[in-house]
Design a protein around this nucleic acid. Structure first.
Lengths: 161, 161
DNA sequence: AAGAAGATTCACTATTTGCTGAATGATGTG
DNA sequence: CACATCATTCAGCAAATAGTGAATCTTCTT
């Protein structure tokens, strides 16, 4: 039973899912573009397609797409002998999105580590509190790295079927 | 060697760390308040202290503090027979912050799961792509829960010293 | 080399967000 | 019960953000 693709339903879904991503902190148009790519049949859309289906200006697409490629959630490709960029949702989109958060976490950790000194060293109560936070973040981010690997393996096995 | 606490250095640190948190997506004043509490000697400050040391209006503190309590990073207490609230950084601040992100992740996951149907079911290529994303997020968030537990135990042991 | 098709940049506008000051509300004290 | 002390809410303002349209830059075609 191969269902027929109801483009209108898909469009509606793109908007709903876009909203969810926006609530999660992603810029609005970037959210909609990512949603559109995820829901697109072959996960590949040109800038022109995006401006048309999302009803925004090419300029806006350009900016949003820069953001998405920057955080590694989509890739920009160009078929040789063509001028149009085609954007593809990367297989590692979520992986990278989480890892980019990880980078932020690392910043926080480093700043807190410096804070230990600023408040008078690890013997002070503020110092202890900061250090404990550092330890926690460190623990979580390390383990998160392991999880990504575990997933890659698990996925590889599934793909082998 | 118990260092003397240099309040000026602490204040400077609060601003730097506040910036880091803001970059991570936390509203500006909320970041500064959380930083101030983390760096405070006993991790407890009244609203008045906050307005004074951070040089903002009581109204602003009220709003920022609402945000922070909402995401569970600080607690509001009031000593009986007093009108002043005292805000304390919760021991589980980071834990809860991460878990609250987790709630967001769950929203995303649920939305993508609904998307599988919208794009024509799990047999379509878009459906497969969405389902794979769901699986990944599911995997990560579950494991993240385990990690929090592991940390609690680890921490309990350390505290026993 | 000229032209066309596309992407990007830039100046501007509209919306959203974070803060202030003033007014209002809540809660303890004489 | 009236007053004082704090917290909160609300209208307004200032700064940041996301998008538009026009101009510019790139790159393929002929």
């Amino acid at each position: 039973m191969q269902q027929v693709r109801d483009e209108q339903a898909v469009a509606a879904y793109v908007e709903r899912f876009g909203d969810v991503l926006t609530d999660a902190g992603m810029p609005r148009l970037a959210s909609r573009i990512f949603a559109a790519l995820l829901a697109d049949d072959d996960g590949r859309m040109t800038a022109a397609e995006l401006t048309e289906t999302l009803e925004v200006s090419p300029a806006a697409v350009s900016g949003a797409v820069r953001y998405l490629t920057h955080v590694g959630m989509i890739g920009k490709e160009r078929e040789r002998g063509s001028r149009r960029d085609v954007y593809v949702v990367r297989a590692e989109a979520w992986h990278d999105a989480i890892m980019s958060r990880d980078r932020v976490m690392n910043e926080i950790m480093r700043s807190m580590a410096r804070g230990v000194e600023a408040v008078g060293g690890p013997e002070t109560s503020a110092g202890r509190r900061l250090q404990l936070s550092v330890d926690f973040i460190d623990f979580i981010t390390r383990r998160l790295g392991d999880l990504q690997e575990e997933w890659s393996e698990r996925r590889a096995k599934l793909m082998a079927d």
